[in-house]
Simulated assay, not measured.
Amino acid sequence: CYYAIDVTVQCTLDGQFVVVVSENVTLPPLDLGSIQLDSSSPSCSPVTSLSSFVMYQFPVSACGSTVQVSGGNVTYQNTMSAAITVSSGPEDSITRDSVYKMFFQCTYSGSQDVQVEAEVYTVAPPLPVVEQGPFDLELVIATGIITGFNALSFPCPDPSYTSYYVDADYPVTKMLRDPVAVEVHIMNRTDPNLVLTLGGCWVTPGPSASSQPQWSLLVNGCPNTGDNYLTSLVTVDRFVFELFAFVDPVAQQALAEKILIYCVAAACYPSATDPCTRSCPARSE
């Protein structure tokens, strides 16, 4: 008889396994048609198949069962599992089926039934490809000297980002039109596949990112076309600009002030539809 519980395992005196499995044993409901025993023999098919449960009945030594003898006891054991249906798309493959595996056994002593054990092993679902997690962003300035730098050249000569100014070096003193090699990178990340992309980057002499006046270096990740000395993109997270000074709007004279660099950045996960790269308009002299 079936008593509407998730799994029923019985061992009969005449040496038969009786196993009943309900669709409610997993969430989402188990695809009962995908259940199979270790053996693929036709005799190992269910004896009863309904929409809500299936029942198997077979000799304890059949259908791929294994046997162990210990201390006068004979134990027969078998494994039942359910296959999953995989849907493949242009990018990846998915499944909406539960993973199910059940180990069951019968132990006999002489002609008497003894302890019946049934263990269900549910495989944990895989970790999501993308998940929330903390990381830090750091903006640094490279100390390398760029030879033959020309803001109109493309691509920009690599300024050899091999060494960087440290905290004790700031504020860094440079002359007008000196190249300033900037890098923004991700720190303390747990996912090595993340790619950083820059949005806007700007300079202001004020103590905060919203201070005025401001001058844009990058707009939506591309050089500010309103600058006669275009910023040069080295990679998606590196760029070089030529140092400038803000001008007093009344006296029309250069201001000798410290300037601070700010950037808006995002962490991007590359995919077939989004390679995390940006196409900027071609430069013109």
Rank of each mutant, 00 (worst) to 15 (best):
S52N: 14
F103H: 13
V116I: 15
P171W: 03
E257P: 06
P28E: 12
L198R: 11
T8S: 07
P223I: 00
Q252F: 09
I259C: 10
E138W: 10
Q252L: 12
G206A: 10
T66H: 11
D6S: 15
Y229C: 02
P159D: 01
E285D: 14
I145P: 08
H185A: 07
Q16K: 13
G144Y: 03
S160G: 09
D237R: 07
A4L: 15
S52P: 06
Q68K: 12
L194T: 06
A83T: 05
N193T: 14
A245I: 09
F58T: 08
S216C: 03
G133W: 13
A142I: 00
L50R: 12
E183P: 11
V203I: 12
T235K: 09
V60I: 11
F154M: 06
T204V: 01
S43H: 07
P46N: 05
T8V: 08
T79D: 04
T225P: 07
V114S: 10
V25S: 07
V54H: 03
V114Q: 14
P205E: 01
A209H: 13
D227P: 05
T273N: 14
L230H: 07
F135G: 09
C1Q: 12
C280Q: 08
L27G: 11
T204N: 13
G15R: 08
C222L: 05
P213G: 08
Q68C: 07
V182Y: 11
Y164K: 00
P90L: 09
I145Y: 12
Q252R: 13
Q115D: 12
D167R: 07
T231D: 00
Y100S: 06
D6F: 02
G221E: 03
V166C: 08
E91T: 12
P171K: 02
V234L: 11
V129G: 14
S70I: 01
P205G: 11
N188R: 03
A151W: 04
I261Y: 08
L194Q: 02
V67T: 14
D274P: 02
G199P: 10
G33V: 09
V7A: 01
A124H: 11
Q57M: 13
F244I: 04
D6L: 03
N150M: 04
P171F: 01
E183T: 10
F244N: 00
E285S: 05
V264E: 15
L176Q: 12
Y262D: 09
Q132Y: 05
F239K: 08
S216P: 06
Q253R: 15
S153V: 13
A168C: 05
I186Y: 02
D178A: 14
S22R: 01
I84R: 13
F17D: 09
G71P: 02
